[in-house]
Design a protein around this nucleic acid. Structure first.
Lengths: 249, 249
DNA sequence: ACAAAAGTGTTGTTTCTACACCCATGC
DNA sequence: GCATGGGTGTAGAAACAACACTTTTGT
């Protein structure tokens, strides 16, 4: 048999929601769409799935082509499939999300396509249903980060406890008690303190920490509790796949 | 513009992992594939995405066509996309999973296609990558059920605490202390005791309970803890989307 | 009367939250 | 010397796990 008869074939796009954190705000990486329709409007990093690649491979390829980044934390999130989501023709939109160290990106920036960071709180209008993809990513991120140490993916190799705390406070838009927070994080053993201090933000300076890779991977499956239970946002439902894959370039 | 040029269109299939529980064992609903290749081999409930329907709609349609069931708990799980996963041609496999009350199904059984229940522990060989889909579903179910009261979807309207406990014990293959278990479950307020008892399994009889819909939906987002923390299987990673949608037929 | 399953309470341990002061430094 | 942000400890409350006996009733 050569093919299935009487069935409709359709395009499959991969759209990557690329999230960064600059120490203060969550940022989203957007690009100006290079072709019609909606040419020059802001869009997620996207492209069409090619015949010889899997979705994971396509997501990596697209991210690399548009940003120059590899070896980034990435997950398949959800398929958006409304028949008219793309006005041109039927396109199934597979959403992936990526968490990246924004400074790492600054180095490797491939600005041929001039992607741009926008503050998550003030995004421009996005094409098609891309805003839905972003919304779902944030929901997923809030859910997952409440249970697993995923946010470390957004930080540079060396980071401080105050930085980490701001990261969590920003995601849930809540204040967190620093004593309880540091006790919880340190008790897991996933980070270790360095001699060195970051003096850029205070006179006293804050100790740098680094991730313990082994402990990090071990803890990843465990259900943690960095966020006070009552603060886990009710909008966050359940659901999840398990696929925390560190895609390898 | 009429269509995107120079891009490859492909088939999209929807495959439903339909899970039931008969009071003792987890069961999987399989069907004998109706067309070549692999005709008459055991397969998940599947079909091709049609031009006018979304994936959610396709999943509902397929489940209904093959089993006669509507209004069933269903989630989009993951897209399987290896280029050669179907030997005939490129097909993107969208996996959904459904949890159903097996007795409800017995009533509404549409046996035109003769689907068959198999014990999860002794499945026949499945076509293509369907076993991977089942494996991922179980992983997801174990993860999610440890945090959210999702397993109630597998029980009939009226059920007993011993039944519920067997359901949890079976999923994780662990024994659970019935005193702690009942205290935890009851303290959430998601079920209420009826006068009536189930005397089919003991002389003394076990009280029937029913779900409190309001409380159930309210609790659904909360992170629960029916399973002792150390028993949450380490194989279960993180990841999830949030999409606990009760698809409406 | 006894076997089989259902139901229920207590205790010690751990984990959580709430909360306030001293420290180090650059200016 | 003082303002700024960084670091640390304790105590009361809540949640958890471990554990064993009594109840019901069909035979």
């Amino acid at each position: 048999m050569i093919e299935y008869s009487n069935q409709t074939r359709m395009l499959v796009s991969v759209d990557c929601v690329v999230i960064g954190f600059d120490g203060e705000d969550y940022k989203l990486l957007l690009i100006q769409r290079g072709f019609e329709p909606e040419k020059d409007k802001w869009s997620l990093m996207g492209g069409f799935l090619q015949p010889s690649e899997s979705l994971d491979e396509a997501a990596q390829r697209i991210l690399f082509e548009l940003t120059g980044l590899r070896n980034v934390y990435m997950e398949q999130l959800h398929a958006f499939s409304h028949p008219n989501r793309d006005p041109v023709e039927r396109v199934i939109g597979m959403t992936y999300f990526a968490l990246i160290d924004i400074k790492q990106y600054a180095k490797q920036l491939c600005d041929h396509f001039q992607p741009n960071w926008f503050k998550m709180k003030s995004l421009p209008a996005l094409i098609f249903d891309h805003q839905n993809m972003v919304d779902l990513t944030l929901k997923q991120l809030r859910y997952k980060a409440a249970l697993h140490p995923i946010l470390f993916e957004l930080l540079p190799k060396k980071f401080t406890l105050p930085q980490l705390q701001i990261l969590y406070e920003g995601l849930y838009d809540i204040p967190i008690d620093k004593r309880n927070f540091s006790r919880k994080v340190l008790s897991t053993g996933i980070i270790s303190r360095k001699q060195e201090k970051d003096k850029s933000k205070s006179k006293k300076g804050a100790y740098f920490y680094t991730l313990n890779q082994e402990s990090y991977h071990a803890q990843f499956q465990r259900v943690l509790n960095f966020i006070p239970k009552n603060e886990i946002p009710p909008s966050v439902e359940s659901d999840q796949k398990d696929r925390a894959v560190l895609l390898e370039g």
